[in-house]
Nucleic acid binder design. Structure first.
Lengths: 163, 163
DNA sequence: GCCAATTGCTTGAAGCCTAAAGAAATTCGG
DNA sequence: CCGAATTTCTTTAGGCTTCAAGCAATTGGC
């Protein structure tokens, strides 16, 4: 009894399995991400971060603030600033200062931006389908379930640390 | 019969499920990666790429060539060059030109590098264990299996494109 | 109304990353 | 043995990313 308590904190336990799982998860993501990245470049001469940002905005017809984008994309504020800058420059994004709060920048897709994104998104979806082509419907559902559980567990772990 | 053939190529099929799965996979990885990154910075003032590189070298006592590292880490050659440069500079890595092929650089951990890595790796393993803490042993095995399948499927898809 | 804390965003320094081009060494076909 | 192709690594330009510091606007306590 006392043992089981001390053990968790003191003794070096074997977590090689979790480690291997994490590495495999990372490998899968890196593999797919790299694939998507080079296809986006080849077909549309666009970078993955730009695509991701446009994807967020496509889901928000009324626009988003930079903070919203930053949270959704899980990247830093400064990162978003530069990304938006380049996309405004290229005519894909429209940027306005909020009427009610002059600190806030509201961005949304321009007509051009939306049109281009839709084209890219359609192909993108088929690439992703191809990536998972060998998984059965049951595999897909099961993987979804386990990743949901993983996400929850990871979030809990992160909040434990911040506490 | 003809239908099933045309359909796969022509008709816009619904692959929303695969798309959601990919986004969830990406979210999990980003979450965990961010967590590991900030912990490495806090505790050891080291970056994730440096840690990853040292992890590769820890598994290869006789050293590795830069190309080996590049393939293993799935990053570009130029990336490795810079990374190695900084780690040699900080005394963690040792770099020598191969005796048999003057193009080849062989790198390995120094005593300092190995000692520091071992300390980091021990903590790292416990962080990862914590991330997956809510998954049962069965979950872990099942997730491992499905990710193996995903990896194989993704590799197949990537090679189809390059073909 | 005022001042402190917070929030939203930008800036700057450093590092990471890729693609593409190029330099140097090796390998291989003939 | 020669030259073409390949391999290994570096360099360059451009972009992505973080952290930390800082500025401007708003909010909330008093």
């Amino acid at each position: 009894m006392l043992d089981s308590e001390t053990k968790a904190v003191e003794l070096p336990e074997d977590h090689a399995e979790e480690l291997r799982l994490w590495l495999r998860l990372l490998t899968c993501t890196t593999l797919i991400e790299g694939e998507v990245r080079s296809r986006l470049r080849e077909r549309f001469d666009v970078t993955l971060p730009r695509f991701d940002l446009m994807a967020q905005l496509d889901k928000a017809p009324d626009g988003m603030t930079l903070s919203d984008v930053s949270k959704r994309m899980m990247v830093s504020n400064g990162n978003v600033t530069g990304l938006v800058e380049r996309l405004v420059e290229s005519g894909h994004l429209d940027r306005r200062t909020s009427d009610t709060d002059r600190r806030v920048q509201v961005i949304r897709l321009t007509k051009l931006g939306r049109a281009e994104f839709r084209k890219m998104a359609a192909e993108h979806e088929s690439w992703i389908a191809d990536v998972f082509a060998d998984l059965t419907p049951k595999d897909l559902r099961e993987l979804m379930r386990l990743l949901a559980k993983t996400k929850a567990s990871a979030q809990k772990s992160a909040s434990r640390r911040r506490a």
